[in-house]
Design a protein around this nucleic acid. Structure first.
Lengths: 122, 122
DNA sequence: GGTAGACATCGACACTCGTCGATGCCTTCG
DNA sequence: CGAAGGCATCGACGAGTGTCGATGTCTACC
């Protein structure tokens, strides 16, 4: 049987506004969202984002983040880089210290994905 | 050895109601949510969930899912098992065919995580 | 200038993951 | 009963991932 015609990806610029339910997502849409999910699909990175988001102004210093885990500074730095590369965190250097801040738009992209899904009645 | 191959489905209700922002999440909370995110952090699996959720009654037959990908039947079966083990999909056999259905509560757990996050003002 | 501290990068290791072909199990039908 | 088809499982392979110690880079301060 032939595949359904692609329902015209409306917004190729961003991976936003992709309902998980409703209509099936295209392969392109999946490829765009997956890097965000991959970055968050790690207990350390998920806690890092949570810690940063819970910090003042939605940001946190690396020096404080290191103390929150029983991991090497190199490992924390690696995870922060992964989150930054995925577009979930912003990086800003202030003197000796480096501050990471959450990117609300990135989180919103993921939220939109599951937002529609959650509305599905049981 | 155990005869019933029914995998130990993680209980999504336990990982519910975990805001990403607000207060930092505990290590336990992260460990509970991460399996769901890991299961969804794959383009094939994300599309599988999307396809199933978009199907009639939020379910789909494996025979139809196989045709939607350029992958071996064994690979699709593997991905479905991962999603089922994570608690994201229900499995039901009807005669020769097997139907998978989304578990709205599992999706809601993930949605709740990012729901609060998306509400964070800029 | 020299030194100390904060963070990033490098190289290496064990481990996990995605994919495949082959095979097994189960249901249906002739 | 035997054959056929749908789906799961097995074993194996390459690729990717998380973690570490060691090292590099930059800033601030004495």
């Amino acid at each position: 049987m032939s595949r359904e015609p692609e329902p015209a990806v409306s917004d190729p610029s961003l991976s936003c506004c992709t309902p998980l339910t409703g209509t099936a997502m295209s392969a392109d849409q999946a490829e765009r969202i997956v890097p965000l999910l991959k970055a968050l699909a790690d207990p350390v990175r998920l806690r890092l984002v949570s810690l940063i988001a819970a910090g003042k102004g939605g940001e946190a210093c690396v020096c404080d983040l290191n103390d929150a885990f029983d991991l090497t500074q190199a490992t924390i730095s690696h995870h922060l880089k992964v989150l930054h590369t995925a577009g979930l965190l912003d990086r800003e250097k202030r003197g000796v210290w480096v501050y990471y801040a959450v990117r609300p738009d990135a989180l919103r992209s993921v939220a939109t994905l599951f937002d529609t899904a959650a509305l599905t009645p049981a």
